[in-house]
Amino acid sequence: MSSISSVVGGVDLKVPVVIASGTWPYEEGMWQEDLTRHAGAICSKAITRRPWPGNPGARVWETPSGILNSIGLQNEGIDHFLDVRLNQLRKHGVPVLLNVSMENAEDLDYMMACIAGRADEVDGIELNVSCPNTDRGCMSWGVDPTLTAQATEQVRRRWDGPLWVKLTPQAPDIPAVARAAESAGASAVVAVNTWLGMAIDTKRGVPVFNRRVAGLSGPAVFPLALRVVWDVAGAVKIPVIGCGGVRSADDALAMIMAGASAVEVGAALFSDFGVLKEIHEGLEAAAQRWGVTSLADLRAKARNTSVSA
């Protein structure tokens, strides 16, 4: 029997497939057993210090094999999350990471102080320094190694549990940001959040989104994300969670062979709930096919055997 479970960046994943932030509801009805069996963990929707209405205007737009979104972090704020949503999420036996997003250092400290008070109930923090859909904060931290290190250190002052830092592909030097997060105490990095894009409504002759730009994800970005995973895995020793366009066991395996320890899945759930099960079972089958006792034995396989790395 081979095993695909592992501890990744301090989080116990019985399946190395994590539901990506902002793609799954808190509502109980959506948490059926046939889902929870196949999800290793879930990242909450982004949480901010105060309730946040998100962006006005159009928020989603389909692209070839992808989706542009400009949600803008709509959420009920940290207090409501801890009062209501955390308990709701924890009922399902799936580890919960809190996707924490902030405008400034003060907000981050406030949120981490609140979360520290509930540390026993939180399986990990996913520090979101990478959302491209706000005018202030968020991605402006993640494009810069120094700022990313500052934010990571700041979380570390209040939190010694699992800390995943979610990277942005908009950073001019993504491996440098990953290394900065690592030295500042991150347990893992998630590569990557959405890619800045835009759309024009040619019927009306205007940009689709009020903020003009939006974040692209879905299968369209998979090769881009895979390349980032490869680069980042070569730059840090902490685990890398591959994220961007994963929609099949084969995609997940490619991420792992490029150096990822687990994957996150988001947009693929919009088209098919069955994707988690398919990836779970497909990874088990792949481990057997390759004759390895643990999926970890396939990690970075392609790096170790490629002719010119």
């Binding site: 793609t23 509801p25 509502e27 949600i71 947009a267 919009f270």
Partner: peptide, 10 residues
């Protein structure tokens, strides 16, 4: 316009 059609994406 909808992304997920199940409350997840806002």
């Amino acid at each position: 316009r909808m992304g997920c059609g199940m409350g997840g994406c806002f």
